[in-house]
Every structure is written in structure tokens, then in C-alpha cells.
Write a protein that binds this DNA or RNA. Sequence first.
DNA 1: TAGATTGTTAATCGATTAACAATC
DNA 2: TAGATTGTTAATCGATTAACAATC
Lengths: 213, 213
Amino acid sequence: MANSYISQAVIKRLPRYMRFLSEIRAEGIERISSRELSERMNVTASQIRQDLNHFGGFGQQGYGYNVQNLIEEIGKILGLDQAHNLIVVGAGNLGRALAGYSNFESRGLYIRALFDIQPEGTVSEVRGLKVYGMDELPVFLKEHNIDIAVLTIPKEHVREVAQLLYDLGIRGFWNFAHIDLALPPDAVVENVHLSESLMQLTYYMKHPNEVAE
Amino acid sequence: MANSYISQAVIKRLPRYMRFLSEIRAEGIERISSRELSERMNVTASQIRQDLNHFGGFGQQGYGYNVQNLIEEIGKILGLDQAHNLIVVGAGNLGRALAGYSNFESRGLYIRALFDIQPEGTVSEVRGLKVYGMDELPVFLKEHNIDIAVLTIPKEHVREVAQLLYDLGIRGFWNFAHIDLALPPDAVVENVHLSESLMQLTYYMKHPNEVAE
DNA sequence: TAGATTGTTAATCGATTAACAATC
DNA sequence: TAGATTGTTAATCGATTAACAATC
């Protein structure tokens, strides 16, 4: 039964289901039960069924779930049924690394260009993508129907740049700068704080009796 | 009162406290109450006090918390009171980006070198760090007291390389490959799945009435 | 001392797990 | 049909918030 409010705990698990189901599909397996999937993923079968039933009954009693169908359904839930066009703002190593991720495209996520205050340095292309100057943003965004900006610029500039992009119509922000980016409520911001992840690691190294994730 | 088992929800918040407290210290503020901090961080004051009291009473009634002292105490909890020596395995864009993060050092996290199957390509140094070949790992790890490996290699090779590093004594793994890396129980693994973070973003873009984080 | 704010217990809220009737 | 496994409700568990006595 499709429900309207879904907790963030559930949403966080959906891409992980996608990853495992894609692996399972690649193995040529067509159907899977919640129990089998739970053993692979190290979660409870109950949680899988509970999670999926927030969005609808995708399985069949006595049979389980059709792998391909489930991938498609979760894809729809995650908004991957429609293509997204992205730009990377900040063409440093991190920006180039993300622009080079080839597996985004298999999910309908297309990085279309990079932007930087230094548009033309030594290297101007990543995987055939051009590095443009910031002044070319307005025209490019319109012409290429960009809806997500990946922010890989220093934290000193990120608020200003994000506001500029917001004013130009961008509503999706994947922020790698070390601040919690805040924008008007119709913007969606996903903050990635890599150094915080590393500090979790050092915590668990110091406290070996506690089990991480 | 110091407690032995601490939930992961609490641990995840500690680095964020670090970040905000460091900002506050940089502003020259010496003391802060849980209420003031809660307003900056957009959490409840109750949660802050509850979180901190898992580890000890760092505040003072009627006064609040000393910012510098609290930073030090949380640093100890996170294992940042002792230095960590890291290597980056995989000298692609992502590895170079992480090796270039200058703010790790302020937390006592020192990246000492990069390793790659192609040790000498066009670029051999990142911030003065050398890119070594994999055959030089055993000697380097011993000589430099490395305790954390940052894995930025393709997922096809990561299990094998991680096992090699484990056999050489490494126990901390910060894994960026798109698998959930599993190692013997005395190893600590922090898996970073960037594409899953991006899919959360697309979810919230498709479902604008639900509030992300 | 009086005011402020913690440390900590109790109450509430939400998420996970267990159980099982429904059903393929 | 019989066996398997879902969808879904109920029970449990854990995390967050509220409240307030302790105390600086």
C-alpha cells in the first residue's frame, strides 16, 4: 500500500537494494525471495518486505520478487525513470573524479559538463566533457536542461555559487563542500561530508568492541 | 557517565559536532550552551546533552560547555588524539582528490603516499606525495607505521587488494569502491557509496513534499 | 544568593522485528 | 492441492524528546 510519508531510513536503503538487485540480475537470477535477498544484504527479510510495502506490493506470495521488475520499480521510486542532466561545478580532482564515474549513466544520470573559475587549465577535458567558465553557466543550463549541480568547490565559495545556480533554476544540489548547504525549501540538497565518514572510521578503530554499521 | 555500547546514530553525529564547534572556536567564542549549539546545528538541545553524556559530563551547570575543551574531548572519543598515517591505494582522480584534502592534517590524519598499479604515469606527485608501485607496499607500510588504507580502486580489484593490505597488518579501511567490503572482524571498514547518496537526492527531487535530512 | 544550564530520568515517538493469515 | 512466501498487523526494541532536580 503506497504511503505518503516515508522515513529517511527507508530511503537510504533503496539505492542499496538497487545495487544488490543489479548484481543479482547480472548473475542471471530472475526471481528472489525476501529471505534470500536478506541473506546477501545482511538485513532481515522482514525489513525488506516492510520497506518495499511502503511503496506497493511488488512481490507475489509463494514466488518472491521478480528481479528485473523490482529494479524497475525501485528505479521509479528513486526518480531514475526519467533522465537527469548534471553539471559539475569545480573542476579539481574531486570534480573530475565524479565526472569520470561511468556507472552513473546506467542509472540515467548524465554529467554534461564541468565549470570552473579557471576554465582552461592544463587539462580541459574529462571523458570528452568540456570545462567551461562560470560566465557560460546561464546559457548552458538553459540549453541542456540541467537539473542537478554537483558542487566540488571550496566551502568559502559554495554558498554564493549555490545561490547563483538556484537563481538560474537549478533545484538539485549534491554538495561536497564542508558545510551544510542551506537553500530555499524547494531546493533539494544532499550534503556529503567525507571527512566525517573518515572520523567514524577512526572512532571504530579506537573502540574495537563496538561493531560498525 | 561513560557507557560502553554507543549506538551508531550517536557516533555519526560526533564529527558534525566537531565541525560546528571548530567553526565556533574560529569565531572566537569560548563557551556555548547546548541550546545555542542546538540552534546552530538544527538539532535539539536535549539530543546534544544526551549524546555527550554517553561519554562523560563535559559541561558545567549554569555555564554550558567550554568550546576548546569540548573539541578536545570529542577528538579523544573519535581517536583523533593520536595521529593516523594513511595511504591512498588507487591514484586516479578520486585518490588524488582525497590525497589533496589539506584539512585532514588538522585532525591528525596524515596521508603519506599513494599507490597504484601504474606507479609512474604522467603525474607522479600530489601535494608532494609520491605514487608508488604496489610491490613497494610491504616495506613502506612497515617503515611509515601506516594504519589506514584509503581504497580508490575499481571494485573488481578491491577485495584482493584489501586482503593483501590486511595481511600486511592494516586494520582501517576507507573504501570507495562500489561494494560492501568485508574483512575479518578485527578490521574496521567504512564503506562510502557516493552513487547511493546521489540517488537519495533524486528521490527527494521527485518527492518534494518530504523533507530530506 | 538567584539565575542559568547541565546531567539524568521518565515519557514519547518511531523504527525494526516477529508472527501469521492471505494467497499465489 | 500443498508448499512457499508475501503483505500486513502486532510486539518489541531503541532512539529522541521532555522535564526537572542537582548544582555551578
